[in-house]
Design a protein around this nucleic acid. Structure first.
Lengths: 170, 170
DNA sequence: CACAATTCAGTTGTGCGCAACCTAATGGTC
DNA sequence: GACCATTAGGTTGCGCACAACTGAATTGTG
């Protein structure tokens, strides 16, 4: 009715709110959204920013190594790095000793972005409103969760695994 | 080079926030991967499963309400629900009293999927290896994080917000 | 009633994210 | 050298996720 009061669309409690998985999915999207607006001035996406972080801290490396750190495969990183190359942030170089390998290396412009984007983490941290101890606790839980879950995924798709008894009817 | 010991003169926010964001991003993908393999026999995706969960528990509702619960907009839910309709799981009905509204309602087949998929949560929980108290603690942190972050996103994109003095030249 | 503002769903375009597949290059074996 | 399995990156196809836009329906106001 009056000005801009809440139009009765308050966050109602729904069943999905009880699911840890949905909380994870939802929080992840919310963070990505924050990065989207923070990175918008440079036309960067969150996965592209993650590529920057790895390369800034560890230097040039093959595309496969990058994928292992970010848990992304070539189907994702191939086009993603091509876009970053076209934007002038990095180069993709065929290794001379092994022609299968493509080394991903920052350009001078890409290195310069390290200072350009120095304020990004603090900006996102401001949105997250997490104190240090909670952040570390949360990070630990999430690492554990990702490790356990990926181990499960690998085991259930790989019949050579010997873990897990052949429990028939569960 | 890695495993930096205490960064003496580190400013308030440093790499730690980054790691939390990536841990979240990574864990979310890992869980989605688990759902992917668990739901594969029915050709369902994780967001489609979430739609089922909401509709099973709350019954038919407009597409917009569904989007508010899942934090997804019409650009995502419109094609998603069309695929689920084509698969025979639900119907999309124009409301008679308001022709703008499309009500999403499960078919008998969609209702039957509730028993069909009853084992899914336990299966995914088995992959996650979380005890109840940790799960609840994690869920609480993630809800808080998502709420804070979305509030920040909304405030920074909506100048009509009156929360605090809007920083002029920023 | 006229008409502007708002609401709701849909469409288009871009960028992940991943399965499935392809090709080229490499290494091991004979 | 011929053969084969493996490895690295690329391509295709599909389904999200979201910004930006469209268009129809509804509501508020005079």
């Amino acid at each position: 009715m009056t000005t801009s009061t809440a139009p009765a669309a308050a966050p109602q409690h729904s069943v999905i709110d009880e699911l840890v998985c949905f909380a994870l999915y939802n929080a992840s999207h919310a963070i990505t959204q924050t990065y989207r607006s923070v990175l918008a001035p440079w036309g960067l996406t969150y996965p592209q920013y993650l590529v920057f972080v790895v390369l800034w801290n560890e230097g040039a490396m093959p595309l496969g190594d990058l994928g292992r750190r970010l848990e992304l495969d070539s189907g994702t990183l191939s086009p993603l790095t091509r876009r970053m190359e076209q934007a002038g942030y990095l180069e993709r170089l065929r290794a001379s000793d092994d022609a299968r390998v493509v080394t991903i290396a920052l350009t001078a412009e890409g290195e310069r972005m390290r200072e350009e984007l120095a304020a990004v983490p603090a900006c996102v941290a401001g949105a997250m409103k997490l104190d240090q101890s909670t952040a570390m606790q949360l990070r630990g839980m999430l690492h554990q969760l990702a490790d356990d879950t990926r181990a499960f995924d690998a085991a259930s798709s790989d019949p050579t695994e010997t873990t897990g008894a052949p429990d028939a009817g569960r």
